Simulated assay, not measured.
Amino acid sequence: MNLQQIFSQSDAIGKMVAVLLLLMSIASWVVILYKGWLLRRASANVATTVAAFWQAPSLEEGAAQARKLDQGALVVPLIEATQKPAIGTLAAAGDRAQQLTRVLRDALHGVLHRLHFGQVLLATIGSTAPFVGLLGTVWGIYHALTGISGSGQISIDKISGPVGEALIMTAAGLAVAIPAVLAYNWFGRIVGRIEADLEGFARDLRELTSHN
């Protein structure tokens, strides 16, 4: 019996669980593929852009070099934040170092928000997909046993088939959850490394621009 036959013989709740697992799998793989490409490019861009910035002879030329190289717009927002004067607002209160701390913190939060894209979705799918599959298994077993009891004939052959089909839902839930959990942990390590590099660059940039 193939998956199409199993799906066609299940009731509305069984079909709903199967469709939900399918949608969760598609969503997680879309995020995994997109974010894998995004973080791979981000890692290279941050290293190249920061190195080019510090090799420039002046702050203005360093900013120009960063704009050419920073395709992911991760380093440039930090540089531009130090070049926007806040006049006549509370953001301009305090000395130059305090002002830079505020603007760099806000810019860094915006950059990190983009880097953390999809992490919540992967964590949610990784933690809930096994239980969704378990729900489908429990309901499938209940549905199978109800049908068997209604027929009045109980045997191992009649029980093993429907129960085995219901257990496929558990395997499907794990198949959806495992890639999401692995990707969440892997991406978390990469994001943490990029975040540390950006925070270090922001601190150095604050020290540089606070004396200008």
Rank of each mutant, 00 (worst) to 15 (best):
A107M: 12
G147T: 00
I6G: 00
I87G: 02
H116P: 01
G14R: 05
R41C: 10
R114M: 02
G133Q: 09
L78I: 05
F201D: 01
V31G: 04
G147C: 03
V75H: 07
N45A: 15
Q55Y: 00
L182F: 11
N212A: 12
L39A: 10
A107T: 10
L167V: 14
A47C: 05
K158T: 15
Y142W: 07
L112I: 15
A56K: 06
A47P: 00
L100R: 04
G72K: 05
A177Y: 10
L23H: 02
A92I: 01
P130A: 09
A52S: 14
L205C: 02
Q71W: 01
A27C: 06
I141F: 13
L69R: 11
I87S: 09
A91T: 11
G200F: 04
V46F: 12
V138I: 15
T124D: 05
A183R: 08
I156P: 06
H116W: 06
L22H: 00
D95W: 04
G126K: 04
P77D: 09
G136C: 08
L90C: 02
R96T: 15
P162H: 08
E195D: 05
T146D: 12
A64M: 13
A47W: 01
G118V: 03
D11C: 04
R105K: 13
V181T: 09
E195A: 13
L39F: 03
A12C: 05
G161D: 02
N185W: 08
A129Y: 09
A86P: 00
P77E: 08
L112M: 14
S25V: 03
E207A: 11
G188D: 00
A107C: 10
I26V: 15
A177P: 02
M169V: 03
R96E: 08
V50W: 04
K15I: 01
H116Q: 15
L122R: 04
Q119E: 10
F53K: 04
Q65A: 14
H113Q: 15
L38T: 04
R203C: 00
L145I: 15
L108V: 01
L78D: 07
L208N: 09
V19K: 01
G136D: 13
T170L: 02
A64W: 11
A175G: 14
R67W: 03
K68W: 11
V111W: 12
L182S: 06
V138Y: 06
L33W: 09
G192H: 08
S210T: 05
V19I: 14
A73Y: 02
V75K: 03
I13E: 03
A180I: 06
F7R: 02
R189G: 07
F201G: 08
I168F: 10
R193M: 06
F187R: 00
E195N: 12
